[in-house]
Nucleic acid binder design. Structure first.
Lengths: 106, 106
DNA sequence: AACTTGCGAAACCGAAAAGTTGCATATATA
DNA sequence: TATATATGCAACTTTTCGGTTTCGCAAGTT
């Protein structure tokens, strides 16, 4: 079962879970209350998120708190950065064109 | 068929295609030569990428050139920015802690 | 000790996805 | 005009995915 971050964030429910636990750790039951699915379905999503290390768990008595492993999100940012370079370059080029036009008008 | 950008980039082959055509437009055949799959499989991926507007096509005679719609990548960047805020805040907090320790040592 | 609660895991199911094969179409070329 | 090439599309198969149901276990509660 080769899980990677990109596959993990492909599912909208999982992205919603990520958003939920980004700021505070939550138990599976608490998370499930925010959705129309069962606790077990959420539990499955949490397993996938844990497997690809996007989420970490912390046991407290019989409750398990899940929270976001924010460092792992940087992996996506890292992948995206190569494309960010492209669109920033294009923006600069466009900017140059625009200022050239401006100069010619003067 | 609910296609979104996140589902599109979930597949490793599609990410590879994106990387290939990011800098120069390519035909399906040329793209397929870089992979171990058939042309049809690549064609299917291209259709998915086109459907979610990550890729645009340009017909030239009997060839169709595919290229990356870089603007659409910003959608991912946009989603990621909420989490970037979090890790930047944490970094600043860590930075503050470190400089406090530094001051105490002096 | 009996009951309740919070949870994960396995089994199962239907839907969607990914890949292959085959065919149709349009554009070149001989 | 006949043939080769570039491509999309539809049908079919296998695999994966998301969800539900059921079960078992551990930790609190009464």
């Amino acid at each position: 079962m080769r899980r990677d971050v990109f596959q993990a964030i492909a599912d909208p429910t999982r992205r919603a879970i990520i958003a939920l636990i980004a700021l505070q750790a939550m138990t599976p039951n608490a998370i499930a209350e925010n959705f129309n699915t069962t606790r077990q379905a959420v539990s499955k999503h949490l397993r996938i998120l844990t497997e690809c290390e996007l989420v970490k768990q912390e046991q407290q008595g019989r409750e398990i708190y899940y929270s976001l492993e924010i460092e792992k999100m940087k992996e996506i940012d890292n992948w995206l950065s190569q494309y960010r370079k492209i669109w920033e370059t294009r923006f600069k080029q466009l900017d140059n064109v625009l200022s050239t036009i401006k100069k010619q008008k003067k």
